[in-house]
């Protein structure tokens, strides 16, 4: 079973945290610990994090099969980390990360870290088309992408029907969600937009 999916960048800022099994520590400390272990590994090493510190941290499991393993992959400025147990195949999870990233890439068209920052809800929706409750739902990228597009379209239509006058909008990628006139003004006046 997959116990957790994390995305954080090379400075350790979380971009997505999703745990399917309750963890004993706060998710933030767990993220920090995983980050410190993962980022200290030079490139070219294997994608399985098997550090002695980890067992103490993830809770020692008596049986070999129950041990939590950490499989990660780094893409540009992001680390994708899956925490799994013995029911998952290590290399299979590695492929799954690839599937996840490719799906993100299709949805966002050349995904970059900022897409994940501003559309973290969309990332959650995409993940929910791949993994549900810690079990793999679908591994075929085309199928996943189709469901993702379908759901995004439905949300967009729903938003459009609520705001018939809004331009585009919806929660779909690259379109500002819930842009109320006031919010839009705020953005204009304060000028904090950094994109």
């Amino acid at each position: 079973m997959i116990h957790g999916v994390l995305i954080f960048n090379t400075t350790g800022v979380p971009r997505l945290t999703k745990f399917y099994t309750p963890v004993h520590q706060s998710i933030q400390t767990l993220t920090q610990k995983l980050f410190s272990l993962v980022c200290s590994r030079p490139v070219g090493l294997c994608n399985f994090l098997d550090a002695p510190e980890l067992d103490a941290f993830l809770g020692p499991k008596n049986e070999e099969g129950d041990r939590w393993r950490v499989v990660y992959r780094s893409y540009a400025t992001l680390y994708f980390v899956f925490v799994v147990d013995g029911a998952e195949s290590e290399l299979g999870v590695l492929d799954l990360i690839q599937v996840f990233v490719e799906t993100l890439d299709r949805s966002f068209e050349n995904v970059c870290e900022l897409d994940l920052v501003f559309h973290f809800d969309e990332v959650h929706h995409i993940l929910s088309e791949i993994v549900q409750g810690g079990l793999v739902l679908e591994t075929n990228i085309d199928e996943i992408d189709e469901s993702v597009q379908n759901m995004a379209r439905l949300r967009k239509e729903s938003f459009a029907s609520a705001y018939p006058l809004s331009l585009g909008g919806g929660l779909s990628p690259r379109n500002g969600p819930l842009k109320t006139p006031l919010g839009w003004l705020t953005g204009k006046f304060t000028g904090v937009g950094t994109r």
Binding site: P177, L178, K179, L182, G183, G187, T190
Partner: peptide, 13 residues
């Protein structure tokens, strides 16, 4: 002021 998520993220940055 009502801020959207985007505003919040921008504000944080």
């Amino acid at each position: 002021w009502e801020r959207t998520l985007k505003d919040l993220i921008r504000g944080l940055r």
